[in-house]
Amino acid sequence: MDPVSFITDPLAYGFMQRGLVASVLVGIVCAVMGTFVVLKGLAFIGDAVSHATFPGLVIAYIVGAPLYIGGAIAAVATALAIGLVSRRGRLRFDTSVGVLFAGTFAFGVLLFSTIKNYVADLLGYLLGNVLGIRTADLIQLAILGAIVLAVVLLIRKELLFATFDPLGAAASGLPVAFLEYLLLALLGVTIVVSIQAVGIIMVVAMLVTPSATAQLIVVRFGRMMLIAVVIAALSAVSGLYLSFYLNLASGASIVLIETIFFLVALVLGPRTGLLSRAPRAIGQGAS
């Protein structure tokens, strides 16, 4: 097979076209949000919010509402609840999140077990099936993704300041608490946008892996975000082709290619590469 048709042949299929657009879009939105997730140390929260969407999806299915709406309400509500706990709580923060995380997911599984017939849609959300995405879903996904990107890009300097130095930002008059809740709400929306592509269980990889890889390579915020976006888009495209030709699960393929990028950067990266002369610990003290 010649290289050109290797690339173009899969594009003859509508599901492959939609899958490519959706996964690249999800990759980009996740990479942009992921830069903040990595720098603020929100990976565990991302995982928790993603699992918490499950009961929302199941309830939406049971009452016949659009699944996205159910998932979005559950995700944003959980993200804001976590924000509240982090400001008011008396327990250790990760403990509270762990309790919320497992409890909401268990509730979803419980509801799911009450549904008599086989529900392929809902199972698709657990592990992701971007090749099964419908045009209407793709449009919703594109709109929500565009909103997230627009908000983040418009207030990126405030988000950067509040992430880097919350006290200094608050003293200079930035509404730091509001920005934190906004970031969590955007994280909730991002997760809902992403779960159809890669599934509830692997969303956290889409959020964290490209940005973590980028942090191993560069030391500037803007470049970190850019490189994360490029890695995410490349992984989405190559993961889908891999999935197409070898008949592999699409979400898992994308995530594994991102993971390979990360491992390569870890070994060869200029900042922390295991091969460089003076390895340094990174990511410590992310508050």
């Binding site: 880097f164 130095d165 200094g168 608050a170 200079s172 410590q284 003290g285």
Partner: peptide
């Protein structure tokens, strides 16, 4: 707030954060 500058303790800062010297100082203008 616009007339106040706050300098946090050194331990409160994540020094691995990917920002340059000029970017940090520019935050003072935000």
């Amino acid at each position: 707030a616009g007339r106040i500058a706050y300098l946090p303790q050194a331990e409160a800062v994540d020094w691995e954060f990917p920002v340059t010297v000029a970017e940090v100082v520019m935050m003072g203008r935000y």
